[in-house]
């Protein structure tokens, strides 16, 4: 089975600083692998552990520095890594991103069986790119997956976690799935993996390599655009500090709207 894991490099959103002009200070911003994509990668590695003949390719779209993140996935046991990097891909919205990644997979990895994405990316938090890739490739999707139960006879059985309950769903491959989470031990880099990662080059493709036109990618290929970006207004609340659990209990009682004598 050939698995493609889509990975996004995101800024560490807990550590954002502002410039004087109220824009995000991008220099020196720490980049991390999107946490939900870590779950996607772990799910693929878990499948590789449980079944024979599994080949994993990690794929990312972003600046050249995202190649380092892809190298780390090789150290964890991933077989190949592809970086889609081109200035013409820049500032893509989810539609253009889905189209670019979908087209790249169609062109470069046409015999894939399974695409695994994270359910969300913590920077944009749209949850749209996975389904958009699936639609571009005209394949089924299953979102909000908590666990991959089994993979047999060209079908995947998964457990979805939804607000009103859990679903057990069977999907025919090829398909795209979005991982919410899974409980497993995080994979650790192995020595031969690290050596392999050091010696490997990340395959990089640009716009021409995947046969897209400039008007189909990046900002030009995006139906949406940002007209205004601004800092949210801080809520101005004066916090009244209390000094004991007793006083706090009293405040809770008042806020609950109950009696207090």
């Amino acid at each position: 089975m050939k698995i493609v894991v889509c990975i996004k490099q995101v800024p560490d959103t807990s550590d954002i600083k502002w410039t004087e002009n109220n824009t995000i200070q991008r220099e020196g911003l720490e980049s991390v692998m999107n946490p939900y994509d870590v779950y996607a990668l772990e799910a693929a590695l878990k499948l590789k552990k449980s079944y024979d003949n599994i080949e994993i390719t990690t794929l990312s779209m972003g600046p050249l520095q995202a190649g380092d993140m892809l190298k780390k996935t090789l150290a964890l046991g991933v077989d190949n890594a592809i970086l889609l990097s081109d200035r013409k891909f820049a500032a893509a919205d989810t539609y253009a991103t889905g189209k670019t990644i979908g087209t790249a997979i169609k062109q470069k990895l046409p015999d894939f069986d399974l695409i695994i994405c994270g359910q969300f990316a913590i920077d944009g938090d749209t949850a749209q790119t996975g389904p958009s890739i699936a639609n571009t490739l005209n394949i089924p999707q299953v979102t909000y997956i908590q666990e991959i139960i089994s993979s047999e006879n060209g079908e995947l059985k998964v457990r979805r976690e939804l607000d009103d309950g859990t679903e057990i769903v069977k999907v025919k491959l090829p398909a795209l799935i979005c991982m919410l989470q899974d409980y497993f031990e995080p994979a650790r880099a192995r020595i031969n993996g690290i050596i392999k990662a050091q010696n490997s080059e990340i395959t990089t493709y640009g716009l021409d390599d995947i046969g897209l036109l400039p008007e189909e990618a990046g900002l030009r290929g995006s139906p949406t655009y940002v007209s205004k970006a601004f800092r949210p207004e801080p809520k101005n609340t004066e916090c009244v500090f209390v000094n004991s659990a007793e006083e706090l209990a009293e405040k809770i009682q008042i806020c609950k709207g109950g009696k207090n004598d």
Binding site: G98, Q128, P131, S222
Partner: peptide
């Protein structure tokens, strides 16, 4: 933007070649 809406909306927008703003 429910479980269902988030599953469905991006498929619709991609099929209609239009933009979708989430949440």
């Amino acid at each position: 933007a429910t479980n269902q809406g988030r599953d469905l909306a991006p498929r619709i927008s991609t099929a209609l070649h239009t933009g979708l703003t989430a949440d």
